[in-house]
Design a protein around this nucleic acid. Structure first.
Lengths: 211, 211
DNA sequence: GTCTATATCGGGATAGAC
DNA sequence: GTCTATCCCGATATAGAC
């Protein structure tokens, strides 16, 4: 019996999970090493023993947060699929993945807006090239006249991103405007999962009757 | 001659403008009183002389940022206009106003996500009741079967907000994905100003042929 | 590997001269 | 109203015992 109990994660892992939670909620500037230590139920100096500095700990959290979510979301963008299907699947996949980690979009974007230098290079390296095939495919469709209102590709892509990402970032606004709690927000996301994939396709591509 | 030169704003105003800039870019947690003082070219202790504390200075900046932009944007939501026209005008108005202060959305949302307690009450008091008439009007249209795909009102409104707000918040992502600089981003916003009002209406309301 | 104690520094805030 | 000097706390980080 080599003590592999599920709750008994290593100190390093406990720290990482706690750090993830705190950094996600408070951002780098608002996070406190003490709060991370408390949440991990370990001594503050352990943080430095394992990760040397707040910066390094943050970097680990940031990179792993991105890398855990990103491959699932963008893997299908490189597949050989018709654009319509790709859009539908992308919307579905994004909502499904983020539903399980709803703080990620606001975390990534906050840091990108607040302290670009710390992370933008990693973001560029990891994201840009994986998305490029999709951009190309939209560009082709655009040139072939298949995009509604003949929008340029950047506008198409930003519109899609807006509809899938914003609700998670704007959650507090949503909760104020419609007076809903967390569980109602979850229902709200489920609702989107149902209609949004088709909705985005309709909004983006010319329908048969337009041709 | 009573010395009314445009560049010669009062110390209090210089502080406020500097604070606005720093808080908008760095957020409350990332902002430094020293940086604000440097930017205003005054002594750090002047900050406390005029505003007593970082919290109070922030509150002033936050409230005024919101109150300068909000009335312009939401005033028409209370007018007696057909929904279609109201949506069109709202999109146009939002883009026009935010174009001049593009950091506001990311500022408001960052603080709302990072430190809700500090500002959500003010936000609720100022925004919620001004938007309510618009929510009601969308609800009526929804019950009357005038909304595309028969979406519930919250979904309709969040979709509209996503399309107008997100591009400003996601600017750094946009710049990475499409490799564009600030001036190209401005062009991008101008492009949206042209097509988005009609686009959002089409996306939201059933067209005549659907009836 | 884990703890306590402490160093060090930065940042918000105040006192007091002018 | 504006400046200098300083206080004081909180936060990151390190030293060193166990």
């Amino acid at each position: 019996m080599t003590e592999i109990e599920p709750e008994e994660s290593s100190t390093e892992e406990k720290i990482f999970e706690a750090a993830k939670d705190v950094f996600h909620r408070k951002g780098f500037d608002g996070a406190r090493m003490q709060e991370i230590a408390d949440k991990a139920k370990i001594n503050k100096s352990m943080l430095h023993y394992y990760y040397r500095s707040k910066d390094k700990l943050f970097e680990k959290v940031y990179q792993l947060s991105l890398m855990r979510a990103l491959p699932q979301i963008v893997s299908l963008l490189n597949k050989d699929l018709p654009l319509e299907e790709k859009i539908r699947e992308f919307v579905r996949e994004y909502l499904s993945v983020i539903k399980k980690n709803p703080e990620i979009p606001s975390f990534i974007i906050r840091e990108l807006n607040t302290n670009p230098s710390r992370i933008q290079e990693f973001f560029r390296a990891q994201v840009a090239k994986r998305v490029q095939p999709f951009i190309d495919q939209v560009s082709e469709a655009s040139e072939a006249g298949k995009i509604k209102d003949d929008l340029p590709p950047e506008q198409v892509i930003i519109n899609i991103m807006s509809l899938v990402i914003f609700p998670f970032i704007g959650k507090p606004i949503l909760q104020i405007l419609f007076n809903i709690d967390d569980s109602a927000f979850d229902d709200f996301v489920d609702q989107r999962l149902e209609y949004l994939p088709d909705f985005v396709v309709e909004m983006t591509l010319k329908s048969d009757s337009d041709l």
